[in-house]
Design a protein around this nucleic acid. Sequence first.
DNA 1: ACATATATGATAGTAAAACTACTATATTTG
DNA 2: CAAATATAGTAGTTTTACTATCATATATGT
Lengths: 225, 225
Amino acid sequence: MDNLLSNIKIKVNDKVFIKDPESSELGKRIVQGTIGLIDEIGFEQFTFKKLAKEIKTSEASIYRYFDSKHHLLVYITLWYWGWMEYRIVFKLMNIESAEERLTIAVKTLTEVIEEDKDFNHINKVKLHRIVIRESSKIYLNKSVDNENSEGFFLAYKRLVERVVKIILEINPTYKYPHMLVSTIIEGAHHQRYFAKHLPRLTDIVNGEDAVTTFYQKMALTQLKD
Amino acid sequence: MDNLLSNIKIKVNDKVFIKDPESSELGKRIVQGTIGLIDEIGFEQFTFKKLAKEIKTSEASIYRYFDSKHHLLVYITLWYWGWMEYRIVFKLMNIESAEERLTIAVKTLTEVIEEDKDFNHINKVKLHRIVIRESSKIYLNKSVDNENSEGFFLAYKRLVERVVKIILEINPTYKYPHMLVSTIIEGAHHQRYFAKHLPRLTDIVNGEDAVTTFYQKMALTQLKD
DNA sequence: ACATATATGATAGTAAAACTACTATATTTG
DNA sequence: CAAATATAGTAGTTTTACTATCATATATGT
């Protein structure tokens, strides 16, 4: 991918922010600083006051971009999903075999993220760690129905749908394609987290990326039912 | 199970509470009230002040039982895991076939909970909804390593290990038994939540419990690898 | 060039949440 | 039955999450 994406912008639902953080220098510092700080101290300890200090601005200025720290977390998660969809579309180009496309999609969704130079102000390694630890909090709460009706989760649904389509190409009568895909995405996050913090809840295998291998096999075998 | 469990107490790691809530009338009201209130308003909106009002006691009295609302959530989640382990042990009694045991274990872990009369002050239907929406928050945060070293998650590990053993009975060389079990447990929670709030991320099939069916099949087919 | 819109910064304030310290009362026990 | 102990209740403090106000800097349009 290299620098091909250097003039592409990942679009995020504009109901998530008050002012688009991509539209200004300060906005980008907010996003960059948020990723650094949440990665470091966790979402619960993260406050706008600490962020303001970190990026040398005022609390009030941050409130001009985001309503709440919750919306800021939603923002970076939606950005991540949008970015994932892009990566998948890219990697699947010109690949004909549906099986191969599925294998690549699952690898992309589950593999460890390596740092690259696209979207400069966003550190994807840190973002990935945040998505693993924090992203489910954006929908596991009482505001989910409201936010769903505002379209907050469309980026996630699109991402899932894209992989579902590949599965249905392989087996048009498979009954649980959405379940399979969302199990893989969420499951991979969990397994990476367990590997680091609760290793007895997962399996760490020498010489292979067990998470990716496990879910690739799962995708290919389950859809045969 | 009926009333067989009426004089059994689910043990919860005593580092989670300051004073055992099972040891007094007030303690039981705290647990009962917590389950009702978190189910109703969600963990983020839940406060000790609201709980105190609900159960007609004072904030300070609740603080004598639990350090923080986080520990209270840990408590009810650990209770749930302990209870699940009990249910599984019970249901597997005298069943010889490992395949059948696995099918029953997965059903128990993934099925919809029906109200019963055991452990009277704990409403298991509400508790199940809370576990689905909130339980992952007990480990998806920066205190996980500390709390893990205090043994907070042993009940979860024991539960997983119990099912892992069945899998290894069926296929002693299967490489990913923990991954499979934790994927099933967490996955089932997610799918039930999606079915209610984000249905496009799952598959709802008429005339069957798609969640249980999906994960039962997954367990039986994956371990063949 | 100058008025005006827009962006940011600095400061202060409010309400609720999270937690602590202290006081009062009930119960147990020596 | 007095002293010790457990439990409950009241009144704080600190932090968080947010709002409001005003000052200043920068950009834009005519």
